[in-house]
């Protein structure tokens, strides 16, 4: 099995690109890239019909390694470029990958409006609760009371729940997974890409270097154990009391609704506008 997965990844990597990659050993980004590749492979999509667009940060470097139509945009803006691409060429499958700061701080406005607008895009948001690339400053998902490079005395702001934010903003499909629960993650990404409408997968990931070390979880194993112990499936959470759920987060599908898709609605506009 492991050998097969490795083989599959090599089918999609850009071997003429100058490896090694920029990610730290043990980073969750590699797990997510593997999961994304498996999802795309299982969907039988060709490399030519995939666009992978990113913003800025560690997550932003993902597109350069894979052999799709790839776009590394400006900080927080991946969804705006993706919107232009999708409307210009609706036949393409457009996937964006962003970080928590990228998608919900500097790109927060684009994120909620993309969810509201319902263009058929997939947003993969890697939530490692920190700005990793710039050196561990707090992000919109850094937990209250934890420590960051710019919160040396403890963090006094409150974190966004990205998946819940996406649900409220109107995303057609919202899922949350972790880099520990990889098989669930494979299924979530596959379902999100397949979904007709704006789909979001929030992935809880580990930045043991910038977040973990400052918060007594200085290696990937400790962080994955934390994910294992704090993630609860949506189904299980329904049977739990709010007290039991206090320090937990849910994983699975949080929303899956049928909504009119922007490109199809715009086709109707073209008919209405007529000659």
């Amino acid at each position: 099995m492991p050998k097969e997965i490795t083989k599959l990844i090599h089918k999609y990597l850009r071997h003429d690109k100058k490896f090694p990659h920029v990610w730290c050993p043990g980073c969750g980004n590699g797990v997510i890239l593997g999961s994304l590749i498996r999802a795309i492979d299982r969907l039988g999509l060709t490399k030519d019909e995939i666009v992978l667009a990113s913003g800025i940060g560690c997550s932003g470097r993902m597109p350069v390694y894979v052999d799709f139509n790839t776009l590394h945009t400006t900080h927080g803006r991946a969804l705006t470029f993706a919107t232009g691409i999708k409307l210009a060429k609706p036949s393409l499958t457009v996937i964006t990958v962003m970080g928590d700061g990228d998608a919900t701080a500097i790109g927060g406005n684009h994120f909620i409006h993309a969810a509201r607008r319902n263009v058929n895009l997939t947003a993969i948001i890697i939530n490692n609760q920190i700005y990793g690339m710039t050196g561990g400053q707090f992000s919109p998902t850094t937990p209250y009371g934890s420590h960051a490079a710019t919160a040396p005395y403890g963090h006094i702001e409150h974190a966004f729940s990205i998946a819940e934010l996406a649900v409220t903003a109107g995303a057609a499909f919202v899922g949350r997974g972790t880099v520990y629960h990889v098989q669930t993650l494979d299924k979530l990404i596959k379902a999100a890409v397949l979904k007709r409408g704006f789909s979001v997968v929030e992935i809880i990931s580990n930045c043991h270097i910038q977040f973990g070390r400052r918060n007594e979880m200085g290696n990937p194993v400790t962080m994955m154990e934390w994910m294992r112990d704090h993630a609860v499936t949506v189904e299980k959470a329904e049977k739990m009391t709010s007290e039991d759920l206090e320090d937990k987060f849910t994983i699975g599908i949080l929303a899956d609704e049928e909504k009119p898709i922007y490109t199809e609605e715009y086709d109707k506009i073209r008919e209405r506008a007529g000659d």
Partner: peptide
């Protein structure tokens, strides 16, 4: 829409600029 093109009103000018670059790349 009458000539088969697309008009979109974005959430701000940053997004407008991003969208036209995306469309041009497509």
């Amino acid at each position: 829409p009458r000539v088969g093109g697309t008009f979109i009103q974005m959430e701000d000018e940053i997004a407008s600029m991003g969208a036209i670059i995306g469309a041009s790349i497509a």
